[in-house]
Amino acid sequence: MRLRISQLLFRRIHKWVGLVLGIQFILWALSGSMMALLDADAVGGHDGPAMHVMAVATDGLIDPARAAGQTAVSGLVLRDLAGTPVYELTTGSGVRLVDARTGAPVRIDNALATQIAGHVANAPALRATLLERPNLEAREHVAPMWRIDFKDAENSSVYVSATTGRHLVTRGDTWRTWDFFWMLHNMDYFSRTSFNHPLIILVAFGVLWLSGTGFYLLFKSFRKSDFRWLRRRKPVA
């Protein structure tokens, strides 16, 4: 038994596929327009404002070898951490911080994370939350991290690494609005990072099919009678 698809059925399939894909076209246009209209400075890009660069006080520092102790170290950085010089030691078990003056280990707790974030956001801090996994706002960074929320016009949230004490990223309401429309634009409703996922690939092939069938149906909609006016034209002398 042969399956025959009549032109009427073909048109109906084309119509409904066109309706579904048309909604996505509207979402693409809307989201692209909104992202373009939002103030780029208020969005802040993908990394937010950078930390203020602070000079490191080098007086009275202990020998780095003493700070490392018996631990094998593959990397060492001297830097400022909220006004305190620290050694950032990279070891086989991860990164640890040591006070460069006393040799005492430095732990990034609630108070210290809030103090570090205060160099980024010039507003009263509302709360500090320790995240064991990155959320959508800090999805490009590695946990654990502190999220410090501030009371300002943008409802800013500053993310600080709970391991290194480094500022990771700052997000505000304008960026959150931009990120929502970014989600609609790339159709990644979970991680909001990929342009290469099954849904958008399916839609891309759907658009290709819609274009091909639309081109076919365009020619099928014409009749010879539609071109009579061409035959009736008299040559210009």
Rank of each mutant, 00 (worst) to 15 (best):
A68P: 04
H52F: 03
V56L: 06
A55F: 07
L78R: 01
R79I: 06
V95M: 10
G75N: 04
G69A: 06
L89P: 01
A100L: 11
I108C: 06
I62P: 07
E88I: 06
A104C: 06
A100F: 09
T58N: 11
D99I: 06
H52I: 13
A82I: 04
G92R: 12
A100G: 12
V53D: 14
A65E: 15
T90R: 13
H52P: 10
A104Q: 11
A57P: 05
D109T: 08
T58V: 14
V77S: 13
M54D: 14
G94F: 09
S93P: 04
D59F: 04
P85S: 14
A111M: 06
L112S: 05
N110P: 02
Y87H: 05
V98G: 09
D99P: 08
S74K: 12
V95A: 03
A55R: 15
V98L: 09
R66V: 15
T102N: 11
T58G: 10
V106L: 13
E88S: 09
G60M: 01
G83A: 09
I108S: 02
R107L: 11
V56K: 10
G92T: 10
A67F: 04
R66P: 03
D59G: 11
L76N: 06
L81F: 02
I62R: 01
P85G: 08
A72F: 15
L78A: 08
T90L: 07
I108K: 01
V53Y: 08
V98E: 08
R79H: 08
L112Y: 00
A100R: 00
V77R: 14
P105A: 12
P64L: 11
G92F: 07
D59L: 09
R66W: 08
A113S: 11
G60L: 02
M54G: 07
T84C: 09
G103Q: 01
M54F: 13
A100H: 00
Q70W: 10
V106H: 13
D63N: 14
G92Q: 12
A55C: 14
G75M: 14
P105W: 06
L78Q: 05
V53T: 14
A113E: 05
D80Q: 07
I62F: 09
R66S: 14
L61N: 10
V77P: 03
V86H: 02
A82V: 07
A68I: 04
D63S: 02
G83C: 10
V77Y: 12
V86Y: 02
P105S: 15
R96D: 06
L76V: 14
A57W: 05
T91P: 04
